[in-house]
Design a protein around this nucleic acid. Structure first.
Lengths: 204, 204
DNA sequence: GATAAAAATCGACACGGTGTAGGCTTTTGC
DNA sequence: GCAAAAGCCTACACCGTGTCGATTTTTATC
């Protein structure tokens, strides 16, 4: 009985492997949270997912591939959300909304995002993924800045360059704050928002 | 003939091991530059320094210890410089000077600094070192902000919190720009300086 | 400049994690 | 029910790490 009358909308036909694959990624995220990337061994992941090392290599070619898939899964979430978010015309609102969404993502998946950042240099695939994410962010910030009256362009005091720096500020600030607590994250977010607003000329 | 009339001021008595130790660190920095941390093996370092793996373990207990020592050496440079730099009273000058010094350090030791950042999470000793460096920086930024009229305090729109966010902005922006080219670094520095000035209320 | 202690070096080894290979078992679709 | 595909496992080979004990070289002292 494959994809029969599954009540759900889609065609289903969910292979057993699909479940396992999710289990592997879930386990990986949990391990990343509690042990960190280096300490996490392929055997650990397999064990957590209820299979042996050998079986895991049926799904993923290496530890790095597992993590890459996990990062992809997490980041796609973000892409979805950012695509949905209609651009509010009011800069202040747009900024507040963007920051709030980002806080939520970091609250939910902080360890994965931190790992992604750490591995960006050494694992090209992850670097790719993260760069793309950053570019989305930078584009969004650039739009807001220009909308707020900052001159478009790539010179150091123009929208594009400033957006890039602000993006890195947010990334790094969240990276650290998300290690501490949700409260710290919220505070850090407020600080970033304030600097963003100031840079946009929306605060005296 | 140990430390005889060595023309130099100090007591000399430089052991052979001191030279080797330096050679190891120099090799490590070169390898970090050309291969990156993960690809770099203890054997590589030893070979580059003209000894065998076994001998290297006489100097350092592990690959991580080698890198930690290298980071320490590099960061101490920075501490020196920042201690020397008398605090100019004029905020604009202070900011420009700080940025320039930072650019130089990243130009000279970009790969080491990037590695230090990458390993901050996983190697506590390096995390320690880097945190201390960041704290110096944050204190300096805080001082400038307060001097420029930003209210002291840790609330999101007060000097201390803002300084922290600005520090991370600079760290991350330099991290990326230093991978590209000296020109990019210089531009990135200008952008960070502009945002810093704006946040300090020194630019309309 | 002989000598004994300290410093430096080496080769061999044990361990642990990775990734691969070949064969067995379960699912899946007809 | 039955092939083919998918899933799974054990065993193995490889590589990098870090340790050990024996040996050689430096260093300081007489």
């Amino acid at each position: 009985m494959p994809g029969h009358h599954s009540a759900r909308g889609r065609r289903t036909t969910e292979r057993k492997g699909d479940v396992r694959e999710r289990a592997i990624l879930d386990t990986c995220e949990a391990l990343l949270t509690h042990k960190g990337y280096d300490a996490m061994t392929v055997g650990d992941i397999a064990q957590g997912a209820g299979i042996t090392r050998g079986a895991l290599y049926f799904y993923f070619g290496s530890k790095q591939e597992v993590v890459t898939a996990l990062v992809a899964r997490t980041v796609e979430h973000l892409w979805e959300r950012s695509r949905v978010t209609a651009q509010t015309d009011e800069p202040r609102q747009a900024i507040a909304a963007a920051m709030q969404r980002t806080v939520e993502l970091w609250n939910e998946h902080g360890p994965v995002l931190r790992t992604a950042i750490d591995l960006s240099l050494t694992v090209p695939e992850i670097g790719e993924l993260w760069m793309h994410t950053a570019d989305l962010f930078i584009a969004a910030i650039t739009a807001v800045l220009e909308h707020a009256g900052i001159q478009a362009g790539a010179a150091p005091d123009q929208a594009s360059a400033m957006a890039r720096a602000l993006c890195w500020m947010i990334e790094r600030t969240f990276y650290h704050a998300s290690q501490e607590s949700r409260e710290k994250l919220q505070e850090a977010s407020a600080t970033c928002e304030h600097i963003w607003l100031t840079s946009a000329g929306l605060i005296t």
